[in-house]
């Protein structure tokens, strides 16, 4: 019975996972704190942070969920790279880049409308698209790896892949964001 179990049982099952990923989040926070030093040169940067973290989380957990279904249904194999796996990874990378692009345009519009002091639109676009592409590639493979390994070990990927993908995703995305900010600002556009 999933829902009718006792209060103690619900607490025992959820508290450790939630705490674990809360502490992983502190790493992301540490990187975020170094990002704020760049905001004086890259004004408007903070606007994209929740968006880019959120979209990576959504895309990787959707990928994780599709891979779990695929593994359970058997159209994704744990032994070789199947077409199902390839298509899923491609979709995930495509959506990551596309939504990052949309996000950058929205963010630039809002930023210039609200504060007026923003870095040029091309910087927003490059920072978001590079972050989306690099983190998309890394995370699609990481998520697939976690899903396949947990399935091989007989764990239900649904319970492991989604929270793990979300937390690892945050750390990797924020590092990619930091690097692409440094890179794009270095271009001096």
């Amino acid at each position: 019975m999933v829902v009718a179990n006792s209060m103690l049982r619900i607490i025992e099952e959820t508290l450790p996972v939630i705490l674990l990923f809360a502490f992983v989040g502190l790493f992301t926070g540490g990187f975020l704190n170094t990002l704020i030093e760049d905001t004086s040169v890259a004004s408007g940067l903070l606007i994209i942070v929740p968006g880019i973290l959120g979209l990576r989380g959504n895309i990787s957990s959707a990928l994780g969920a599709r891979l779990s279904s695929g593994l359970h249904l058997g159209y994704i194999s744990t032994k070789h790279i199947s077409n199902g796996l390839k298509t899923n990874i491609e979709i995930s990378i495509f959506m990551s880049v596309f939504v990052s692009f949309v996000l950058s345009i929205l963010a630039w519009q809002v930023c210039s409308f609200v504060s007026g002091a923003c870095m040029p639109m091309i910087n927003f676009m490059l920072i978001c698209v590079i972050t989306g592409l690099v983190s998309g590639v890394i995370l699609s493979f990481t998520t697939s790896g976690i899903a396949i390994i947990s399935y091989r070990k007989g764990l239900d990927p649904d319970n492991i892949t989604l929270p793990a993908a979300a937390s690892i995703g945050d750390v990797i995305t924020i590092v990619c964001l930091l690097i692409s900010v440094k890179f794009v600002l270095g271009l001096g556009l």
Binding site: T14, V17, I18, F21, A22, F23, V24, G25, L26, T28, G29, G30, L32, N33, P50, L53, G57, P163, A166, S167, D170, I174
Partner: peptide, 12 residues
């Protein structure tokens, strides 16, 4: 520093 963890707990 606490923002991502805070959001993760709420989201989870």
């Amino acid at each position: 520093i606490i923002v991502p963890s805070f959001n993760a707990v709420n989201g989870n």
